[in-house]
């Protein structure tokens, strides 16, 4: 998110270029996809490429995050905070976890 906030918008390849010790291309792409699924990023098509940009300005996002933390810690409601965190995930996240687990099982079985 830091890189995309800094550049205003970027492709996956550009984000990777900006990383000091970049992981594999597919890992960066998966990370960006997750951020988009969670609503932090949106994309537009530029030819065959996707250009990603933040859905809210940096200041607004920071304020929002801070408010959540303050709310969680200062109103003494960690349970509600946990519920809020869990609810950030979508059905797609659960499916992804299940698929990851299936892949892990296959790996352990040597497939």
């Amino acid at each position: 998110m830091d890189i995309i906030y800094r550049l205003s918008e970027a492709t996956v390849a550009k984000v990777r270029e900006e990383m000091s010790d970049p992981p594999s291309y597919s890992t960066v792409r998966a990370l960006i996809s997750t951020l988009e699924r969670k609503g932090h990023l949106e994309h537009t098509s530029a030819g065959a490429k996707y250009v990603y940009r933040p859905t809210v300005p940096r200041a607004e996002a920071s304020e929002s995050a801070l408010k959540r933390v303050v709310s969680s810690f200062f109103q003494g409601s960690p349970a509600q905070a946990a519920v809020a965190l869990v609810s950030m995930g979508e059905l797609g996240e659960r499916e992804l976890s299940e698929l990851e687990a299936a892949i892990q099982r296959a790996r352990e079985e040597g497939r």
Binding site: V12, S26, T27, R29, A30, I32, S33, T34, E36, R37, H43, S45, A48, K49, Y50, G92, L96, L99, E100, A102, I103, Q104, A106, R107, R111
Partner: peptide, 25 residues
């Protein structure tokens, strides 16, 4: 190609644009 490794690669492409490996969530 090892199925688990290939499946992992495919999963990493979820949400990517267009055709390629035919990715669609």
């Amino acid at each position: 190609v090892q199925p688990s490794a290939y499946a992992q690669q495919l999963l990493g492409l979820v949400g990517s644009p267009g055709a390629g490996l035919g990715i669609a969530s």
